[in-house]
Write a protein that binds this DNA or RNA. Sequence first.
DNA 1: CGGCCGATTGAGTCGGATCAAGGTAGGTGG
DNA 2: CCACCTACCTTGATCCGACTCAATCGGCCG
Lengths: 242, 242
Amino acid sequence: MHVRCTQCVLRRQPAFIQKSDEEVALIDSLKSEHMTVEAGVEFIHPEQADSELYTLFSGWAFRYKELSDGRRQILSFSLPGDLLGLQGTMFGKSVYGAIALTDIQLCVIPRRRLARLFERVPEVAYEVTWLGARSEAIVDENLLNVGRRGAAERIVALICSLYKRAEPLGLVVDGSFELPLTQQHIADALGLSLVHTNKTLARLRADGLFSISGGRLVVRNLRGLSRFAQHFEEEFVPRPII
Amino acid sequence: MHVRCTQCVLRRQPAFIQKSDEEVALIDSLKSEHMTVEAGVEFIHPEQADSELYTLFSGWAFRYKELSDGRRQILSFSLPGDLLGLQGTMFGKSVYGAIALTDIQLCVIPRRRLARLFERVPEVAYEVTWLGARSEAIVDENLLNVGRRGAAERIVALICSLYKRAEPLGLVVDGSFELPLTQQHIADALGLSLVHTNKTLARLRADGLFSISGGRLVVRNLRGLSRFAQHFEEEFVPRPII
DNA sequence: CGGCCGATTGAGTCGGATCAAGGTAGGTGG
DNA sequence: CCACCTACCTTGATCCGACTCAATCGGCCG
């Protein structure tokens, strides 16, 4: 079940900076192996020591933190090509949890190989840092969203941002893509209650800018959505993949 | 006015991992020079191309984003030793702004030296990545705070987190330290309105767990504050400084 | 069929926003 | 020395968006 990086179809997507065969072979040598996680399973635990560094190869996941009384905040969603577990790798223990939204596959870069990577392959080390910075940029955007937008705007901004990330991955077909989120996930990501999320979604759907059915999100008017939510970030930039 | 890293008193603080003289000399050679910015001045602009990488040497600053209609969200506060501008350095343009809260001094690591740094000094490159991950961890925490805590808890959690960061920098004397924030800053950081921030602060002050006067924050009962806000993060870990 | 999970809807409440006035202290210029 | 300005803090009244509680519904699975 181990896909060699040299055979990897994901990295051919327009989302990613294309690498030479030698570079890809080199990255391949850094990986230990693929790992499969079923939907709903937590694969990085809060407080977990010594988590590995992962590249999400297929499927969706999310990172979250929670308070001791159970209130949960989703920090960010992860799509294919995203790096996961960098904090855990750096600090020696993770401060957030990560759960698979769909069945997923992870490419594993063993924690102990990372220092070696920095020594021997500076270009790839640079890309790790790049992806770390991008990951922060996504959280920055989420914080702006939760801190300063109203409920409807928040939902729309989330949809815009996911659409714009899914698109260069080739996940969007005819303006629609699989959205493996329950309304509870959306609420947890946006700092809203489930009930209010549901009612706001219903109102937005009635406006016809988008629709969700059967786990599929259909975006009818991305421009309109972006304007409504004042969401003008994340113009597409090809990014590294490791 | 250029302080050599070899003479730097900041890096002797217990907050930081101590380096050998050779390492420090090496970092010194990476810096171009010190730069001074007055309180209130924006030194990283949203959309700015080619920002440099900075280490905040003295004073406080904050990073922010805003919506086109003016609503502003403070993403994180920066204290001495923190890295600033990594996103701008990686992506070629910054997506947030940064403003000095006090007069500050910045050590400048020229953007164009960064790739060279990764090639020649992998240990320091690793530390850049480490600090980038830490920066994300701080935003993660802020997102949890804004998304899931009530107003009073938010303020208390902010105070806890700033206290715990200021302490190992030697800024805390007798349980109190300079807090160069207006209530507007606090509101912008916590996703609250100015008025509500003011009223909530008044109520909290009356409870006597802390007090603010003359730009100085006095914490009387850190344990009590932490419990109230369910803030149990950020136990102290020595960190790199560049 | 029963149980479970997710989506939905209504009623009532409340936290935090907005609007509108002050108040205070430091800073400037006549 | 005083009048004025500006930046920040404070307080009261009112409103509304979002929360909680509670019930129902539909689809899926054993």
